[in-house]
C-alpha cells in the first residue's frame, strides 16, 4: 500500500470534517437509530420464517391454544418425520429440483442472448421491440392461465415437462432488461477489438460478454430458480400427481381424511421446502446485490 499517496487524502478529509478513509470510524448520531431500524426490519422479515419454524415444532393443540405460547412445550420432531413420510417428499423434491434447474438454466441463457441483442446489435425497430418486451411485464400471469393451458393441451404437452423447456427458451422480460442494462455498460472497445480479430457476434457473446457477466448470470439463475421452485399454479395445472412438484404436494396432501389441512405438518414441510432457496440465497447474495445495484445504475 502506498501510504504516501493516501496521507494527503486522509488529511484533506479530516480537514473537511468528513473523517479519514481508513482510520477508526467515529460513531455518528444517526447510526444508533439506523441500527435499531435495521434490527426492527430484520425481525419483520425473519418473523414469518421463525413463526413457521415454531409452528412446525408444536402440536396441533398448541397451534390453536389461547393464550398461545411462542415456544413449543415439547418439541415435535415427529411433524418433520410425518412431513417426509406422509407424501413421497424426496420424489417431489427431485421433480421440483429438475424442473427449476432446467427452467432456470434455459431462461438465463435465452434472456442473456436477447439482452445482448438489445444492448449491442443494431436493427430497425429495436427500441420499439424492447418496449414491447418490457410491456409484457405488466401482463398479470393469471390472465394467461387458461389460454396457456388450452395451447399446451392442443400441442399434447400437458403432463410433460416440455412447457418449462419452452418457457425457458422464450426468455423473461425482466431478465432481458437486467442483462440489457448490464451489457450496455461494457466498453464498446472490447467488442471492436474482437471484431477486428475476426470474431462473429455469437462468439463475442459467448467468449466475451458471458464471462464478464457472472454476477448477473448468477442473479438471473437465482431469481428464475426461486420463481419456478415456488410456483404452484403451473404445476397444478399442467402436471399429474406422480410428476408434480413439492409446492403442489405440500398444498394438497397433508390433510385428514375429510380434507382438512394438518397445519403443523404443513409447516414442517414448508420449512423443509424453503431451505434450499434460503441456502442458495445465503451463498449467492453477494453476486445478487452486486448485479442488481450494477444494473440499476448503468444504462
Amino acid at each position: 500500500m502506498d501510504i504516501g499517496k493516501t496521507r494527503p487524502i486522509a488529511a484533506a478529509r479530516t480537514a473537511t470534517g468528513r473523517g479519514t478513509l481508513r482510520g477508526p470510524r467515529r460513531p455518528r448520531p444517526g447510526n444508533g437509530a439506523a441500527y435499531v431500524l435495521l434490527m426492527a426490519l430484520s425481525v419483520v422479515f425473519a418473523g414469518p420464517f421463525l413463526w413457521l419454524l415454531l409452528a412446525a415444532l408444536k402440536t396441533r393443540e398448541e397451534w390453536v391454544a389461547v393464550p398461545g405460547s411462542v415456544l413449543p412445550d415439547q418439541v415435535q420432531w415427529s411433524n418433520f418425520t410425518q412431513a417426509l413420510t406422509d407424501v413421497n417428499f424426496a420424489a417431489y423434491a427431485m421433480n421440483s429440483l429438475f424442473l427449476s434447474t432446467t427452467y432456470a438454466f434455459l431462461i438465463t441463457l435465452s434472456s442473456a442472448a436477447v439482452g445482448f441483442g438489445f444492448a449491442r446489435l443494431r436493427a430497425p425497430g429495436k427500441r420499439a421491440m424492447f418496449l414491447v418486451v418490457l410491456s409484457t411485464m405488466m401482463l398479470p400471469q393469471v390472465l394467461t392461465i387458461l389460454p396457456t393451458y388450452v395451447m399446451f393441451s392442443r400441442l399434447g404437452l400437458v403432463n410433460t415437462y416440455w412447457p418449462w423447456v419452452l418457457w425457458g427458451l422464450a426468455a423473461s422480460p425482466y431478465l432481458v432488461f437486467l442483462f440489457r442494462q448490464f451489457f450496455a455498460a461494457i466498453p464498446r472497445e472490447l467488442e471492436d477489438a474482437a471484431i477486428i480479430d475476426g470474431c462473429g457476434w455469437p462468439r463475442i457473446f459467448v467468449r466475451i460478454f458471458l464471462p464478464l457477466s457472472r454476477p448477473v448470470l448468477i442473479t438471473a439463475f437465482l431469481l428464475s430458480f426461486t420463481w419456478s421452485w415456488g410456483d404452484y399454479i403451473a404445476p397444478a395445472l399442467l402436471l399429474d400427481v406422480d410428476h408434480t412438484t413439492l409446492s403442489v404436494a405440500i398444498t394438497s396432501w397433508y390433510k385428514d381424511p375429510h380434507g382438512n389441512g394438518i397445519p403443523t405438518v404443513q409447516a414442517a414441510a414448508a420449512t423443509l421446502y424453503i431451505m434450499p432457496v434460503l441456502l442458495i440465497f445465503f451463498f449467492a447474495q453477494r453476486h445478487f446485490v452486486r448485479s442488481v445495484v450494477g444494473s440499476a445504475v448503468k444504462g
Binding site: 388450452v150 393441451s153 397444478a236 408434480t244
Partner: peptide
C-alpha cells in the same frame, strides 16, 4: 389410471380446451 390432483382452475381449463 392417470391421477390428476383436483384443482377447479385446471378443471375449467380442461373443460374449455375440450379435453
Amino acid at each position: 389410471i392417470n391421477l390428476l390432483e383436483f384443482d377447479a382452475t385446471r378443471l375449467n381449463a380442461m373443460l374449455a380446451s375440450g379435453n
